[in-house]
């Protein structure tokens, strides 16, 4: 794509959880739930990477593993030349101000006992404890103004704001330490459609202004299309496709992506009624016992015998479109 070095580079990241049946004896071996099973991607500075996939495919776990909020089983996460997974706690804390996170439930992500002024100031006070109080206040006002919250509200509490306002406050909290990456974990899923647009546009404006990179997790494909430069599709903890957003929506490479795209509703009732939707058979297989070979083969419409044999690697179909499928 370009010769710039990536901001974040994730290689073969695996997050496995130990699952033990209820009432099992302590010495029975626990099962491994492969929430994220070997994910590779690069994130360029200033880029927005959309991550889509159905519930339980490992989107949020992937984000949390990058932030080291859940321990990774294997793999590397390179952040500006440092391997994040190998840093000690102190060095990791240093890096946390460079990457911030926005959460799904706007109200739950703000401490109900703190005023929004205190909430927004917290990252700043944590990373720069020596900044005088007056300057902290000034920066809080500035950043609140930027996200569209009146600065005279700083003494109010989260429950006095609407969902969209709370999400703006969450964005302000992420912005105040001037990070280089913001990981947005379904930031608009809990919001009303009209508010979604406002929040998304705010994020895009800020991104342009500050040259931020975004990792944008969502399950709403039209939202992802609007905001992303590139889109990564996850299925059962595996990457099935990464490509430029335009390309992915125009000509999806992987059969799973195809099915996803065909299910996006069209905001025109007549077009919607005549549209063909690929309905996938069966349910999502259990991540405790994923299918052999290609994880998607149990529901794939074009699967053949070779799909059960080996896991398809990501291969370039041209135009930077990486697809993990034997048939393409």
């Amino acid at each position: 794509m370009n010769v710039q070095s990536p901001l974040l580079s994730v290689r073969d990241l695996k997050v496995w959880f130990d699952i033990r049946a209820k009432g099992a004896l302590p010495w029975t071996p626990s099962q491994k739930l492969k929430a994220v099973d070997g994910v590779d991607f690069d994130l360029m500075p200033g880029e927005t990477l959309g991550i889509v996939g159905e519930s339980g495919c490992g989107k949020s776990t992937l984000a949390r593993a990058i932030m080291r909020m859940v321990p990774a089983e294997a793999g590397t996460v390179m952040w500006l030349g440092d391997s994040l997974l190998e840093l000690n706690k102190q060095d990791m804390r240093e890096h946390r101000k460079e990457m911030q996170m926005i959460f799904q439930d706007p109200l739950a992500s703000l401490n109900p006992r703190m005023t929004i002024g205190q909430i927004v100031a917290e990252p700043l006070k944590t990373h720069f404890p020596d900044i005088p109080a007056s300057e902290v206040k000034e920066r809080v006002r500035e950043v609140l103004q930027r996200v569209g919250i009146l600065p005279n509200m700083i003494n109010r509490y989260p429950h006095e704001f609407s969902g969209g306002q709370c999400q703006r406050i969450g964005i302000a909290r992420a912005l105040i330490v001037k990070p280089q990456l913001i990981i947005c974990d379904e930031p608009v899923s809990a919001l009303d459609v009209s508010i979604q647009a406002q929040v998304i546009n705010l994020l895009m404006d800020i991104q342009e202004e500050m040259g931020l990179s975004l990792i944008f997790i969502a399950h709403d494909l039209s939202v992802v299309k609007h905001i992303s430069t590139r889109v990564m599709v996850l299925y059962l903890g595996n990457v099935v496709e990464i490509s430029e957003a335009e390309q992915l929506y125009r000509a999806p490479g992987h059969p799973y992506t195809e099915a996803l795209i065909s299910a996006v509703p069209i905001p025109d009732p007549e077009a919607e009624a005549s549209k063909e939707v690929m309905i996938l058979d069966a349910d999502l297989p259990s991540p405790l016992n994923p299918p052999s070979g290609c994880v998607f083969r149990t529901r794939c419409l074009i699967a053949g015998p070779e799909c059960a044999q080996s896991k398809p690697p990501l291969k370039d179909l041209g135009n930077q479109q990486l697809v993990a499928c034997h048939k393409r």
Binding site: Q100, Q104, A108, N111, H127
Partner: peptide
């Protein structure tokens, strides 16, 4: 999530 947010921010 507000506790998660604090962890992500790097609060001790």
């Amino acid at each position: 999530e507000f506790v998660e947010a604090a962890v992500a921010t790097g609060v001790s």
